[in-house]
Design a protein around this nucleic acid. Sequence first.
DNA 1: GCAATAAGTTCGAGCTAGTGACAAACTGCG
DNA 2: CGCAGTTTGTCACTAGCTCGAACTTATTGC
Lengths: 394, 394
Amino acid sequence: MLDPAVSLPITRQYFPSERQSASNRTPRQINRNLILNLVRRQQPISRADLARVSGLQRSTVSLIIEELIADRLVVEGPTGRLPRGRRPTFLQLNSQRAVLALDIHPEQITLAISDLSGKILAQKLVDIPESQRSVAAIVSGIRKMIAEHKQKAFDGIGVCLPGRTDPAGEDPIFAPNLHFPFRDIRKRIAKATGLRVEMDNVANACALAEVWFGESDGAHDLVVVNVAEGIGTGILANGRLIRGDKGMAGEFGHVQLDPDGPPCGCGSNGCWETLASNRAAVRQFVESGGAAGTTFSTLLSFAHAGDPTAIAALERMSMNLGRGLRMIATALAPKEIVIVGDFTSAWYRFGPTIEAEMRRHSLSSAAVLRPAYDGGSARLRSAVALVLNSGTLQ
Amino acid sequence: MLDPAVSLPITRQYFPSERQSASNRTPRQINRNLILNLVRRQQPISRADLARVSGLQRSTVSLIIEELIADRLVVEGPTGRLPRGRRPTFLQLNSQRAVLALDIHPEQITLAISDLSGKILAQKLVDIPESQRSVAAIVSGIRKMIAEHKQKAFDGIGVCLPGRTDPAGEDPIFAPNLHFPFRDIRKRIAKATGLRVEMDNVANACALAEVWFGESDGAHDLVVVNVAEGIGTGILANGRLIRGDKGMAGEFGHVQLDPDGPPCGCGSNGCWETLASNRAAVRQFVESGGAAGTTFSTLLSFAHAGDPTAIAALERMSMNLGRGLRMIATALAPKEIVIVGDFTSAWYRFGPTIEAEMRRHSLSSAAVLRPAYDGGSARLRSAVALVLNSGTLQ
DNA sequence: GCAATAAGTTCGAGCTAGTGACAAACTGCG
DNA sequence: CGCAGTTTGTCACTAGCTCGAACTTATTGC
């Protein structure tokens, strides 16, 4: 395992917000981050192209690249080819640096290794019987994964989970849908591995993943809705995550849509997530005569096979999802609303219902609604984004 | 009227977001804005104190101040007194520079002059019969105001109104509660006066006013709710306004709270503003037997005098306001929710009802709820904030 | 072999902030 | 009155940064 020479300073927030005054080194910090991000997004890329894209001079780009190579973040690759003139030297992120991603999900825990560009290199389930879940079991899984990839230099571990953490990302503070003995999980993983651990809500993480790995460039303005046991949302405005007081922003799932609705884990009733989450669909299915004990994934396969009761339950879930999305679209007018969760695998079937319900209000008609591009590994990539994003405090 | 030597570069957004790369002049831009804001907030203040507060060196502060004085933004004032040592030279904003503020309200139009620190120096109603409202009438009011204050150098005109403008602030695009022939209002005022005109929604403007004139320093994280004919909100997160796609963020007023509720001007029904706006209270009052044609201000005075029908209507409005605020507090977890509007004059009576309803949900209990500090001139000061804030593009 | 072209480097100019020394201005005490 | 002590504000110098022009290196096509 390589010794990481320098901690990862990659960031999308080019301008430090901690110290408000600027020193004569501020331009370098800003431009260094800019160049590093361009390399990450457009690799392989030459110094000359970086100069053209960034607007900086070739000489300046060369100096910055020299620094990044010295810090082992960037390496020179093969030379390119041009119709005329000297061949460019391609630059890439150092592929020996990697990030660990941990996705804690109510039904399963997944561990993965990714490079700095978000490519998942290896992935496996941390197979723990539900009754024996513990931080120790996760730690041993991480240790094994690291041991199997000795040649990599790990820059950190990203952990995403369906719940809120305190603002410092130290401990989960609100995760009613996750039954897990969390106590000090961040500190214990950090201590066991010696790596920096970044932990956050899965919807927040997915929103950051859109910034780090998404196609769109300029200002990001979107809401990620994670539909699972409950519903959590991550809000990105002006290219930054909205965390809110005590990190509690985005609890649209606990906005009361139906004052006479079912009770909710939060203590209220009729919250959006009691009407539109996976659990709501299963409850609806069982109430309509479906087999008790059905899981959401079985429900999906029933619907896929044509079971009318299952389809009806998911249709109703879709209507309620759309209704909540209408609220979000009206309230925040995001450019995009991205849905994450197992339900996206049935998008071809229920997407239109959701969208029609969302657009019933003229003020909510502008937002683009779509499932996460990479449904399968969206959560893992989002955990990677947490580490990349921690270059500066958010 | 002085010729403004330099356009106002004051801004709270210290870091330019347009061009992402930094030049060797970037630190100066950042620090200049920082220093100018410190002068604005803490005037009178000496160079030495500025150095202590900003973290910059005294020599650097002196150079920046020299620049600001040359640009006629700052002037030297009297010398201070200290128990020991040389007396400091106090610095202040150039009081000859001023801003015009125009508040377009459904019931009245107000025009004011403010200095750069937000102090209202003069104020008057633009008295136009409702049937004869026109941009031309406003322009002539502005011309008169400018003529009466020849010695001032005006840096711009801020216009706030209850409705949305297009993202460039060019024209109102969604103002269903305002009956006014707006056509090209921004351009026409700009052309008639030769000044820069900044126009925005009143709730957005009030949110910016909290940044510019509010007490709290660090990161601003609040929602301003303007309760008038309709309900508009301005959302401030990470110290920046959330504008959303086409400037439509913040339309919480048009989130449907009651699917069976009254029809709304937006085409939907049961929107929050059909239940909790001034108009909703008046409608409720009339439906309960109150005199038809009652205005909201008369309704308030009826309630003040003890009229039980009026009190009941306002109680119901308060409950519904609280319900919507609960939604906002749950969804965004702002540190503060600030209420603007005539209703705040009855806060002593109905505030507790609103707050109790808002806090019925455990997840919404953290936000501080308060009426705008300066109810009377809150909207005017917010229009001033628009001009100050336009130093860089938002 | 030469002209044309493009990548990447070198070096000085000009801007920035930081540093430490200095002059200026004031208080209080002997 | 004079002097020590203190604080403000300035100055000269250093070091970091980007820019721009000139330069070297590498390649293609004639």
